[in-house]
Design a protein around this nucleic acid. Structure first.
Lengths: 332, 332
DNA sequence: GTTAGCACTCCGATATCGGGAGTGCTAATT
DNA sequence: AATTAGCACTCCCGATATCGGAGTGCTAAC
């Protein structure tokens, strides 16, 4: 743990570096922090902080720059923050005037988050897990292809095409379909569906039972269906990383859906700040601030990413605020 | 129109510039083209081409670089091309082994196109226009909210939530719903639906008729519903534009769905190559090669974009080939 | 533990320079 | 009239040198 003055020095150093991007000198810290000591004292403390791994020098006669560990300490102990009234209002008006289909809504949210934070933003859509089935319909598109459409009580719709080996008769489809409606009414997605034989299946003909079983599989799979990731504010990236090759690697991460989701730290509950090596993407100068929105069931995560030199104080607050607002908006 | 030698010189100049990115000298052209004349003659012709606006010099003692007009002439008159066997095979295997839900399929196609061309790729999804309604279902999610789900004969599903002022009874919803099924069976989206009173509406109660009318509006609007744009291979951008501020402007274009669609030249039929000022995005160093896929009805457009210095010969071929393959894949 | 003073380091901006690639022009040739 | 060899001229670009200044570490005094 750091003593008061060293804490203050580290805090001012990080914040000065966040705003200017230049290595910070002992004098600059002194001026910012209005400490009751001299530059030489600050230099002594800086030497200690450097020795402990919180900061480093780009070269011999330069100022200091935070290390991973320095940022981590700052985020964990030194960065309280609250939002300006205007920002809060902006979030509120945005969500109070939003009425759109879910996908569009999430995309717009990612744009909003990016615009407020000035960092590119990610929003992971909610899954179907935990949703209650309200309606299921089976449509025979081609002789051997069935389209299964599932609607939940929150208005989410899931579709899936089913390829059969033998063409069923319309009557058989209807038979299976009616049994499904009975079986799945009020069914909660994610609950166990396949393990035991059910009463609805009893009366079905062989052909209808086959269809029935196949569709139950589809419904079972729906709970873990691919969740969408929405990305907004990518154009901020050029301001954040000057280096083309770094930019390239970040874009490569974004090109792959799988790795994008990893950025959001799905395991975490609540807010998470991950720095550099803590992120699976394997980038060094990368930080992600993310937070959960909505219920466990009908919610997801959102966040922003940027270089380690990031305005954590404000960003964390904004991400949390927007998460909460989206959660409320979806819940109500 | 340019005479043979000038044409050849322009072609070689463009292709040399495309591969090297350096201003091209008279001697380099001579070596490439194996022309039966001297460097001085080439220089004379270059002076003429420059005078006519096909090429320009970055500075006094440098080689020549194509202008907008030079690229345009090249694309229109000088760039036939055919694909290597391996590329063709790759496209074929990709599509023959693809079985997925539409959205995923289009995203994967954009990735493929980008990977083959090494330019970022766009795929505009097909609209619902021209699709035949196969099934329509109305689900009452909340007392005053109805969910309308539409399935077409090709297995596309469209959903839309409908907010009512007064809560209908389930019986009224069923009544309207049954009339809708009768009215919309085999209806082709995009056809006129609202202009004349129809027979199915005759027998409905006031409340049901209200719902019925509102839903017809929803169905009518479905034909022109927002089509998705899929984007792949964004990480190639850093290789294409070295300049951060240019990159930033391109990313800003991609951030907005509306402007992204403009890139694809939706008016065009078949293949389109647009250069610099011809593109609404207002970028100077930008070229887009795009092509239609599928039928007029169930099709869309795809394309790639890059700087003007682009391998048009190959790119045009690839975009056309992939378009055709996707069209076939969707049609079959 | 703190501070003033000072020598030392090293970055980065600016200036200078020369080689070399490429052109345009002229005059001769076909 | 078109082509070509020859040559003077232009100007970019990379390498090298220089220099001021900001910042540090260390030492010795408080």
């Amino acid at each position: 743990m750091l003593d008061d003055r060293k804490s203050a020095i580290l805090r001012e150093l990080v914040e000065e570096y966040i705003t200017t991007g230049e290595p910070v000198s002992s004098r600059a810290i002194l001026e910012r922090a209005k400490l009751d000591c001299s530059a030489a004292t600050v230099r002594n403390d800086l030497a200690v902080l450097e020795n402990d791994g919180y900061i480093m020098k780009p070269h011999t006669s330069a100022g200091r720059v935070p290390t991973d560990r320095g940022y981590r300490y700052y985020v964990d102990h030194l960065s309280p923050g609250s939002l300006r009234r205007r920002t809060r209002d902006r979030i509120e008006t945005f969500f109070s005037s939003m009425h759109a289909e879910l996908g569009r809504m999430l995309k717009d949210t990612s744009d909003l988050l990016a615009e407020i934070t000035h960092y590119p933003a990610l929003v992971l859509g909610p899954g179907l897990q935990g949703q209650t089935v309200r309606d299921i319909h089976v449509v025979q598109i081609e002789p051997t292809v069935l389209l299964v459409v599932l609607a939940t009580d929150t208005g989410r719709v899931h579709q899936s095409a089913l390829q059969l080996s033998d063409p069923p008769t319309p009557a058989e489809v209807t038979e299976a379909s009616e049994a499904l409606v009975a079986r799945l009414d009020e069914f909660v997605l994610g609950d166990d569906l396949l393990s035991e034989r059910d009463s609805e299946a009893q009366a079905l003909s062989t052909a209808a039972l086959d269809i029935y079983d196949r569709i139950l599989e589809v419904v079972d799979a729906a709970a873990v269906v691919r969740r969408e990731v929405y990305l907004g504010g990518t154009s901020f990236m050029t301001d954040l990383w000057e280096d083309l090759s770094k930019l390239n690697r970040i874009l490569a991460v974004l090109d792959r859906q799988a790795t994008v989701r990893e950025l959001l730290d799905e395991e975490a509950v609540g807010t998470s700040v991950r720095l550099g090596p803590e992120i699976p993407a394997g980038e060094d100068d990368l930080a992600v601030v993310s937070s959960s929105y909505g219920d466990d069931d009908a919610g997801g995560r959102m966040g922003v990413f940027g270089p380690m030199r990031m305005d954590y104080r404000r960003t964390i607050k904004v991400v949390e605020e927007v998460s909460e607002a989206l959660g409320d908006s979806l819940g109500g």
